[in-house]
Design a protein around this nucleic acid. Structure first.
Lengths: 185, 185
DNA sequence: TATTGTTATACTCTATAACTATA
DNA sequence: TATAGTTATAGAGTATAACAATA
């Protein structure tokens, strides 16, 4: 990639030299992975989340739509659209729970299970591509650290964290600027 | 957080047990950080990207809007809206380049520089919160690994990676399902 | 003609709330 | 009354293309 000033991005004084910005590094790596993975996941109805739903269904652990939505961190109304597409594609089926007819069990079809297997393999290739600059040992360490953080994040109450941070934040107040609403459109 | 089946998420067989899904862990950590950071960044016009623009301007490295947009990975049309808001908030100013009047230099005002400093401090608290489960040494390792990957991602050509992966992907083809367009709305 | 920045349009995604059916 | 799922609406965000100014 050659930038407007003719230098190669990445060697160009650190590419805007975002210093030790942890958030920027995390976001960049995430977008890098997401963009490459989209090559694989665009084939799945609903994209990344569609795959996660089918994957969970293939493990046979889905007792209700809302429960799955919470665990995947998406809205229950979005889950409805997602399942409509996945069901129409023949990847999962909705079955009313025999004990509580308000709930729907989500089960993966054979086609859905096959899709999961191949997608899993293909995602491993994507992962290898994104982690290419790291040694085998470093990849293992990174995976381990991320998974530990992720499991904490799932279990944590986001609002609890928010409040805790807000407490510390009182020590570092902003001047005044409020977020401006977008006026144009 | 208590799930529908009464167990605590995170200890619940791994919360849908997404196995060794690197992408899911990465996405979860990223969303966790983004959500907590929004407490700080909602105060900045344009949110996270607005902050990144002001931050780059405060370092005095911005020769043109398009160049900055490319380095931050956003669209040049979005940059226009972003700068409109930031300029109206008095955080940056646009100055025509003396050598090429098509370009606009972006420079941070004193107010913009102050905002950057305080925001930087507050983001460090957010980072501490998200990385709470890790030791000091582990945090250092994680930061290092992510920054190495990020610098590669910035320098890499996304389409080049895409093609390389697609080559490997030919060995693991999908059955048939194509992405379905959303029919309802 | 190519490029920087701006503007206008349409499209996608998301959040919110109202509705039904079951409990 | 409370909950699971669905549907409808409006809003925010994004991508695309067309445009004016400059090189």
């Amino acid at each position: 990639m050659v930038t407007s000033n003719g230098t190669t991005a990445g060697t160009d004084r650190g590419a805007v030299a975002l210093g030790d910005d942890f958030g920027f590094a995390l976001g960049t790596v995430f977008r890098s992975y997401a963009k490459t993975a989209s090559i694989v996941l665009d084939e799945v109805p609903g994209g990344p989340r569609g795959y996660q739903v089918v994957s969970a269904a293939a493990r046979g652990e889905v007792e209700s739509q809302t429960g799955l939505a919470q665990q995947l961190g998406i809205d229950r109304t979005v889950m409805t659209y997602l399942l409509d597409d996945l069901e129409q594609a023949g990847l999962v089926t909705r079955r009313p729970s025999p004990t509580d007819r308000r709930h729907r069990h989500i089960v993966a079809t054979d086609k859905g299970k096959r899709l999961c297997e191949t997608t899993e393999q293909r995602l491993r290739l994507v992962e290898d591509c994104v982690l290419e600059g790291l040694s085998a040992e470093e990849r293992k360490v990174l995976r381990d650290l991320l998974e530990r953080l992720a499991s904490r994040a799932v279990g944590a109450d986001p609002m609890g964290d928010a409040c805790r941070v807000l407490g510390d934040l009182a020590e570092v107040p902003v001047d005044s600027p409020r977020r401006r609403a977008r006026t144009r459109h």
